[in-house]
């Protein structure tokens, strides 16, 4: 798969960093505005899917290959679980919001959510990495078939 015409390639080149940053923004401020980890993660995956469609898989794997997507997926899941255990250790219950008790009375700020932004980001990275992995395997599978 060599990719599409040069107009599509150039426009993809211009917009892809903004899509990526928007995905992380949606994931990070999920507790303040509509959004959250799940749509943010799908937007991050969509950024890399767009790159794969426009440029072909070689260029995209140069940025973000299958090993690093697997590593990101596992690390994000592990971070999610670690937040639960840290809540158990410091707050007295599994997934207790232990950071939030340190910042009382600061509503409507990024820090007011306690560990919610961290969990949101972890979920976003996890969903994004796993969906990109599925799409990359679909692309790879077709390439093998054509041989």
């Amino acid at each position: 798969m060599t990719g599409m015409s040069s107009i599509v390639k150039t426009v993809t080149r211009w917009v892809s960093p903004f899509i990526f940053a928007f995905g992380i923004y949606i994931a990070l401020t999920g507790h303040l505005t509509p959004g959250g980890g799940f749509p943010g993660g799908v937007i991050i995956a969509g950024c890399f899917i767009l790159l794969t469609l426009a440029y072909g898989k070689e260029t995209t794997f140069g940025l973000f290959n299958l090993e690093s997507s697997a590593v990101t997926d596992s690390l994000a899941a592990l971070a999610f679980l670690c937040m639960g255990f840290l809540g158990y250790v410091f707050g007295g219950g599994f997934f207790n919001n232990f950071i939030q008790s340190g910042f009382p009375g600061t509503s409507f700020r990024l820090l007011s959510g306690g560990n919610m932004p961290i969990i949101n980001l972890a979920i976003g990275l996890k969903v994004g990495a796993s969906l990109f992995a599925v799409f990359a395997y679909l692309a790879l599978f077709r390439a093998i078939e054509e041989d």
Binding site: G36, F38, G41, V42, V127, S130, L131
Partner: peptide
């Protein structure tokens, strides 16, 4: 529902 949508994608 928000979890169900993402699971449906998987």
């Amino acid at each position: 529902v928000i979890t169900s949508i993402v699971i449906s994608l998987g």
